[in-house]
């Protein structure tokens, strides 16, 4: 009985079986289970797990796209990578991008969700507006942003000069280009965070707020601190990590608006990987970058899992 090895939580998900075993039924269920799961399993291996393993393997070779021979070169790719100035720039840029975008996107998403949920009127209207960028094609809106950032006729510079603020060619200035991309990223991602927070807020039982009011915690601050914040804990951890993982993958805006420039100021990990792998065809080197990227993603997921474990209240 292999099922006995299943954890209790998994076990309960299954079909309760009468006490007396029916071997024939068990075999049939095994056959059915395998035949229904196998096509998906094969594809999971073909499209995700297999390629992921290949990427790791490839990163220890010298293979370039189209070359007839492959040689095992151990850690040489990583040695080269860690000595590569562009890699460190890309990694730093990615970390800055994620580090600035996540708090803004999560904070604004939470703020908007709180404001929307706290009132009676206009909730649907506002959530639609704030969510609109999530469904819109990033590439198309990126072009609109590019025009808005245009140094002379761009809307943003017109506003800035009207307000007497300094203007610049946002996407061509190495000091501002990355933050211009962050602004676009925040604009695009906060709607999803808002929706996730709204779902989280709506799942908080109303009588907790009422109990808090009777207990004396009825100011905005106390309500937020005693009920909303702790009840939102798991959702918050999830939203933060998902936003971080997604923004780690930033590519579209870089590829279409800045090409990683000016002077590598907006080069990010996935963009460097794309260039090495598909422009310069250095597949093995790109694979090494991919492995670094994967490692960061897994660390984020691990952090999420540990935090969630600690913050889940219901057994």
């Amino acid at each position: 009985m292999a099922e006995i090895a299943l954890k209790p939580a998994e076990y309960s998900a299954g079909v309760p079986r009468p006490a007396k075993g029916r071997p024939a039924g068990a075999i049939l269920e095994n056959v059915a289970g395998w035949s229904l799961a196998t096509p998906a399993l094969v594809l999971i291996w073909l499209m995700f797990l297999g390629p992921a393993l290949v990427v790791i393997g490839l990163s220890f070779t010298d293979w370039q796209f189209g070359m007839p021979t492959v040689a095992w070169i151990g850690l040489d790719n990583y040695v080269e990578l860690f000595a590569d100035r562009v890699f460190w720039i890309s990694l730093t840029n990615t970390l800055i991008y994620v580090g600035v975008l996540v708090p803004l996107s999560v904070g604004l998403g939470l703020g908007v969700a709180l404001l929307i949920e706290d009132g009676l009127s206009g909730s649907r209207f506002y959530s639609a507006i704030y969510f609109l960028p999530v469904t819109a094609t990033m590439l198309a809106t990126a072009l609109a942003w590019e025009f808005a950032f245009h140094p002379s006729v761009g809307f943003i510079n017109q506003i800035f000069s009207f307000l007497g603020l300094p203007t610049t060619d946002w996407l061509k200035n190495p000091d501002t280009a990355l933050f211009a991309l962050v602004a676009i990223g925040v604009w695009q991602s906060m709607g999803l965070n808002m929706v996730l927070f709204l779902a989280g807020l709506r799942a908080i039982p109303k009588d907790l707020y009422e109990a808090a009011a009777i207990d004396g915690a009825d100011s905005f601050f106390e309500r937020f601190r005693r009920v909303t914040w702790p009840m939102l804990g798991p959702a918050l951890v999830f939203v933060v990590t998902v936003t971080a993982i997604r923004s780690f993958q930033v590519f579209d805006t870089v590829a279409v608006l800045t090409d990683g420039g000016p002077n590598k100021a907006t080069s990010v990990l996935i963009y460097q990987m794309y260039q090495e792998g598909f422009s310069f065809l250095r597949s093995a080197y790109a694979a090494a970058i991919t492995v670094v990227f994967l490692a960061f993603t897994l660390v984020l997921t691990l952090a999420q899992a540990t935090l969630l474990d600690r913050r889940t209240h219901y057994s």
Partner: peptide, 30 residues
């Protein structure tokens, strides 16, 4: 809903694949 030997392993594989960003398999798939 079905109990079959290897169900848990299948589920673990699904979760593992869920953790892999779509950019990771790109080079081998290409």
């Amino acid at each position: 809903k079905l109990r079959f030997a290897g169900r848990q392993m299948t589920f673990v594989l699904v979760i593992l694949a869920l953790l892999i960003p779509p950019q990771v398999p790109a080079i081998p798939l290409y």
